[in-house]
Design a protein around this nucleic acid. Sequence first.
DNA 1: ATAAGTTTTTAGTCTTATCTAAAAATAAAA
DNA 2: TTTTATTTTTAGATAAGACTAAAAACTTAT
Lengths: 218, 218
Amino acid sequence: MITFSEENYLKAIYHHSKDYPNGVSTNAIAKSMCTKASSVTDMLKKLSEKKLVNYKKYQGVLLTKQGEKKAVNLIRRHRLWEVFLLEKLNFTWDEVHEVAEELEHIKSEKLINELDRLLDFPKKDPHGDPIPDKDGNFTKDIKVLLSTLNEKETGICVGVNDTSTDFLKYLNKQNIAIGKHITVVEKEVFDGSILIKIEDNQFYISHQIAKNLFLQLQ
Amino acid sequence: MITFSEENYLKAIYHHSKDYPNGVSTNAIAKSMCTKASSVTDMLKKLSEKKLVNYKKYQGVLLTKQGEKKAVNLIRRHRLWEVFLLEKLNFTWDEVHEVAEELEHIKSEKLINELDRLLDFPKKDPHGDPIPDKDGNFTKDIKVLLSTLNEKETGICVGVNDTSTDFLKYLNKQNIAIGKHITVVEKEVFDGSILIKIEDNQFYISHQIAKNLFLQLQ
DNA sequence: ATAAGTTTTTAGTCTTATCTAAAAATAAAA
DNA sequence: TTTTATTTTTAGATAAGACTAAAAACTTAT
């Protein structure tokens, strides 16, 4: 069983390791976590025993495969909760982080995967950071659902989620096709419908449609 | 600042005090929390210092006004999360409790009040237990939103949530008024619209309307 | 009313996660 | 290459929450 505190250390090490790929210093961790170097040393020993980090005295620390997996999953949870708070609970950009910091520690696979579904499998959090999927993969080719785009964003249509003939017929009729540039002009909060622009035509599509169109972000 | 553990004790005492209004015994608490009597004694001293319980050695314990307020709020959080897990995240009846047990400790007023709104201010949790409102009142007179009724249920219109003139005008036009009996004939899953019956007239109203009409259940 | 049984509390220990202060190791400067 | 400065680790302490074992207080039964 992993504790809240251990999870927080893993997350901090993960973030620092981008800048210090040869080993994250004790002080760097202490500073970012508002704690003392001696506390960090204690925790590194514990995490090392649990095989979540590779740690040699005075040499800095890096995550093991196992540790990284846990860190990435934690980031997934954090970012999904942020999207949830913003989109479903009317939180503002600056309010999300603090609460997500608590929610991310709730331990339930199902909880987080269902949350992912509820939010239409978002690929980015409110700050534009990518959200890893359940296997820990960050989709670098940013194929996202049209429904997850914000106002003013544009993407190229690259695929559909629903492949029923009814849906494809509808797309034909509306002149929506692979390769077309689609811009989100306005999102209707009331029913989730979206005003989109394709080649100088503007029209509304329902949330249902937007949930089934994949775009590649520009 | 109140800890997870303290909150759990408050909850346990609250539940026991229904059966033992003159004082809850140390052993009863220990048993229901799967802990030892000595641990309970320790905690009762701490809670007593914080003025959350009235505790005299060997005499049993009861919540103070302040302690009860916290306990009721905790129950509110627990039950709202249960509704959320069941209705929005496809959890089953038996899965909700364990995860709600963790979620209930997340500290954010806004989080829980927005969750309440997202769920249309439910008055009962999945087990039929009442959900206290944000002021700690269990509505014994079950004033519920029309949107929360199930098919075949009937209620008397007792109020509105939205008081805009546009909304009230609409109600007039549709012959919806305080005192009228309203029966839910059918609920449309697709868009949340509801087929209702008032004095032999049947017609559809949108989810938006149903979310703003209070009924007293029959 | 006193002995036996039960419940509750105290006293002392353990673990987790912190901290301070001092010692050891590494890095930088003269 | 020494000396100085910085970083990191150790040693020892503290607080929260839990435990065991023993003492103290209440309850029952004789």
